[in-house]
Nucleic acid binder design. Structure first.
Length: 835
RNA sequence: GCAGUGGUGGCGGAAUUGGUAGACGCGCAGGACUUAGAAUCCUGUGUCCUUAAAUAAGACUUGAGGGUUCGAUUCCCUCCCACUGCACCA
């Protein structure tokens, strides 16, 4: 284009161009929103990354780039976009990596941070670098500790004895997520269970709110289902059965009370309070039963996760010698202890109905207990249940159940509940799968839990550290590794740190030496980002004005691996803060988009498989523009794809073609040729729609079609239209499009800089979208026989189209004189002759 | 076992509400340009089959089988496979 005043190379050189614009963008603060007075704020957030051992891999880049494209699209649609980045660098993951390479986590953190941010600089995202944060920064974890204290003050944090995972080989406590199928994820040693005193958050107080609110979230259905399943609300009844010859009762939770006429035994968990009392000899039963129960419980409680899995479905148990009375029919039901019953669900005691529950059936077979059918099987089957395959857990009609006989299960259930509740034998009850959130970690690399235990005055107990003394800084200790005895590494902190004064009585007090779970760090970070740099950033966890402006998050983008843990914790914290009047909303992420996973050779990328793809070399070779666009072209963003080397060369080729076409076939004086004009506006429409839906692969395909036409000898585009096209590609290829855009716009580095990334998203002109001609299909018996290009007016009228078709030689060939039995006409689309 | 997601050419994938299956790209084959290569460009490319110098014609085809419909990748039923999450939850 001779009229352009500056020259441009004939090929796109990504390295120099990327470096050039990175600097110009930073200087012009292109990606820094006005946090206090934004225009149409849009909070574009990607899930908090932790620095992994391998650094950023291509899967991370896929996540970030896809999210960034959405952010850039919103920015061009007139929003002030906040797209922050930071590092979830505290926690076991980082600590383990430091241990592995023999470095101190505090030192390694700085190395990882530098490397990670350098990599993130390269991928072409429009991050607001001014608002970054790291969870191990005392300025950040000061507020994580503050959050803990608020939980404590509201009665939502408590300390209790709990079982922890213990790896005898690593001599350390493990988090649940480090236990895979009952073995330690690192050394594959069988994990044991140990008792320890732990801090918990009462997330279960909010089980119902967490469940109910799911309905109003625009989230992937799969994640919503996972959360519902995890919360696991079950409505049922608790039935209190008197224990024969005692004054005691045993309470069982059941969701199927209508089957109670078929109940033939009761089973309690080894951890059940009655079982423990028997073991201690506090219940009057025959000596042999007491010994048997004690032996069984001792064994069961020692059992590791691994053994429990191995023993799965092999039913064992011990008879207590006690009987529960089923008042419905005054039958005596023997009470057993068995480890297939879980202590943590319901009441830890189960009433056995072997004909209608597979586990109960298996147990009844082993213990030779009676089996009574009370619900008819398929086709009204009333025969006795003698085989596993006959166990009837589905709906049917009641039998052998006195006043329930003949009723359908659902009806019978309502009736028996009313009956038993009225008699005072049962109460309605709800049970949840969700447990309280275990916060304590006997590890080093995390925020110290900000609590002190008074030594001087025992009645003071646990006291929170006064808020003006926060943060409780993590002391530097050389021997940070987990100790062999399950105690926290911070026990070895200097006395000056360990001992302090009790905020209540002023006597000596000892600090809590556990640190908090990493998931606590990430449960509130989205509130901190928009607050950074505000007037109140140093005095409040989050700035109320900024929060009002920016929260809730406009789009939260991340993988499904956090379907329950992180997303549930963040919701819980937000709901609590809302309840305390600190937030005006009760859900942090009304909209969540779950991206897919990038796999390599059909498998998830992992270091052990040796298939981790590092994006660095590809960025060096092809540039971020090409890699980003290639990744997005791989498949639908919510499905991920398989990373292969051969496809990326094709994308590189296309990028060069775009460059060449823009440079060679743009005119400063002539208008866009008509066919191309039409194509451009179709592409604008398609891209606008697809980017809004995260359908990146099809948006790219449509741009390719446009460039293919543009590249044709007879086509050329005006400068203005070419700039419009570049806008469509800008979110994907931010560097190249900026270079070409500024070249077309004749910006030479002087005067006001207006980035393509701050320009307006193109609007499709409906004038160019009007279809004059359509492809009209002629079918016979539903099969396509011919396609005609006809004017729209013809295609809209059956009469006109039939007149037209009769004039066509092709129609005669197809019909061969046959007379249609029936004619189906779809305006603008097709006509189908049924013969 | 339960739940979810998916299954379309040699490969990744496309197909607004049931209406031309295979867009776009990769790969492959042939050709042009070139001393040669790189780069670029052009043409072809689901399978089978018939006829043929060529043009062309036909049948089949969206994991398998069945159903609804003038018409099904799309809706319904049965089954198979892959991946993911939960898993003795009463």
């Amino acid at each position: 284009m001779r009229t352009m005043k500056n020259t441009i190379p004939s090929r796109y050189d990504h390295a120099t161009i990327s470096a050039k614009w990175q600097k110009i963008w930073a200087d012009a603060r292109v990606y820094e929103p006005n946090l206090d007075h934004p225009v149409d704020p849009y909070y574009n957030l990607m899930m908090f990354p932790y620095p992994s051992a391998e650094g950023l891999h291509v899967g991370n880049m896929y996540a970030f780039s896809g999210a960034d494209i959405a952010g850039r699209f919103q920015r061009m649609n007139g929003h002030d976009v906040l797209e922050p980045i930071g590092l979830d660098g505290f926690g076991i993951h980082s600590e383990n990596y430091a241990m592995k390479i023999g470095k101190h986590p505090a030192e390694q953190a700085l190395v990882s941070e530098k490397h990670f941010y350098e990599q993130l600089q390269q991928i072409g995202n429009g991050f607001a670098w001014n608002e970054r944060l790291e969870t191990y920064d005392p300025e950040y974890y000061k507020w994580t500790q503050w959050l803990f204290i608020q939980m404590f003050k509201k009665g939502l944090a408590y300390k209790a004895i709990s079982k922890v995972n213990w790896c005898p080989s690593c001599k350390t406590v493990l988090a649940d997520e480090q236990v895979e199928d009952g073995v330690c994820e690192r050394c594959k040693t069988v994990v044991e269970r140990k008792d320890a005193k732990q801090w918990f958050f009462r997330i279960t107080n909010y089980a119902d709110t967490l469940l109910k609110n799911i309905e109003k979230l625009r989230w992937p259905e799969a994640i919503k289902i996972a959360q519902r399943q995890w919360i696991g609300k079950k409505e049922g009844v608790e039935i209190a059965y008197p224990i024969a010859d005692t004054d005691e009762k045993i309470t069982c939770f059941t969701t199927r009370p209508e089957t109670n006429f078929g109940a033939t035994f009761v089973v309690i968990a080894p951890e059940h309070e009655l079982a423990m009392r028997i073991s201690r000899g506090e219940v009057e039963i025959a000596r042999e039963h007491q010994d048997e129960v004690k032996t069984y419980c001792d064994q069961a409680l020692k059992k590791s996760e691994q053994q429990r899995l191995e023993d799965a479905r092999k039913k064992t148990g011990a008879f207590t010698g006690l009987y529960a009375i089923n008042k419905l029919n005054n039958s005596k039901m023997p009470i057993y202890v068995a480890d297939f019953v879980l202590a943590g669900f319901g009441t830890g005691a189960v009433v056995g109905v072997p004909a209608h529950d597979l586990r109960d059936f298996e147990f009844a077979q082993v213990m030779e207990l009676p089996i009574i059918r009370v619900v008819t099987g398929k086709n009204g089957d009333t025969t006795p249940v003698v085989d596993k395959n006959q166990v009837q857990e589905d709906d049917g009609a009641m039998i052998n159940s006195a006043f329930l006989d003949g009723l359908e299960v659902a009806v019978a259930s309502k009736k028996i509940i009313e009956y038993m509740v009225e008699k005072g034998w049962a109460t309605r009850s709800t049970s949840y799968h969700l447990r309280d959130w275990l916060i304590s970690r006997q590890r080093f690399w995390g925020p110290p839990i900000p609590m002190v235990e008074c030594v001087g005055t025992p009645s003071c107990g646990w006291q929170p550290v006064p808020e003006d003394q926060l943060p409780v800084e993590l002391p530097y200790i050389e021997e940070y590794k987990p100790m062999g005895d399950g105690k926290s590494p911070l026990e070895k902190a200097p006395e000056s740190w360990l001992m302090t004064t009790c905020p209540r009585c002023g006597e000596t007090a000892k600090r809590e030496t556990d640190v908090s779970d990493t998931f606590l760090d990430s449960s509130w970070y989205f509130l901190r980002y928009p607050s950074l740099g505000s007037k109140t950033a140093s005095t409040l966890a989050f700035d109320p004005e900024r929060i009002k402006t920016w929260m809730p998050v406009s789009a939260y983008i991340g993988g499904a691996e956090h379907a329950v843990l992180h997303l549930l914790y963040a919701r819980f914290v937000t709901i609590a803060l809302h309840e305390w009047g600190l937030l005006s909303f009760d859900e942090p992420f009304p909209f969540l988009f779950g991206h897919g996973l990038i796999i390599k050779d059909g498998a998830k990328m992992s270091k052990s498989r040796g298939n981790v793809v590092n994006p660095d070399e590809y960025i060096v070779k092809f540039g971020a523009d090409t890699l980003r666009t290639y990744l997005m072209f791989l498949g639908p963003y919510d499905q991920g794809g398989d990373f292969r080397d051969d496809g990326i060369a094709g994308m590189e080729r296309w990028m060069q073609r775009v460059w060449r076409t823009v440079v060679e076939k743009t005119s400063a004086t002539n208008p866009t040729t008509p066919a191309l004009q039409k194509k451009l506006h179709q592409t604008i429409q398609k891209c606008t729609h697809d980017l809004g839906e995260f359908h990146y692969n099809t948006a790219i395909a449509s741009m390719m079609e446009c460039v293919n036409l543009w590249n044709d000898a007879s086509e050329s585009m005006s400068r203005e239209d070419a700039m419009q096209f570049l806008c469509l590609l800008a979110p994907f290829a931010p560097y190249m499009t900026e270079e070409l855009f500024q070249w077309l716009g004749c910006w030479d580095g002087e005067g006001e800089f207006r980035s393509i990334h701050r320009s307006n998203w193109p609007i499709a002109n409906p004038q160019f979208l009007v279809q004059n001609d359509v492809s009209f299909v002629l079918q016979m018996n539903g099969k396509t026989k011919a396609v005609f290009t006809v004017p729209l007016t013809t295609a809209r009228s059956q009469e006109r189209i039939e007149t037209f078709l009769q004039s066509q030689e092709k129609t005669k060939q197809v019909l061969r004189g046959a007379v249609p039995k029936k004619t189906v006409f779809v305006p603008e689309k097709l006509i189908n002759y049924v013969i």
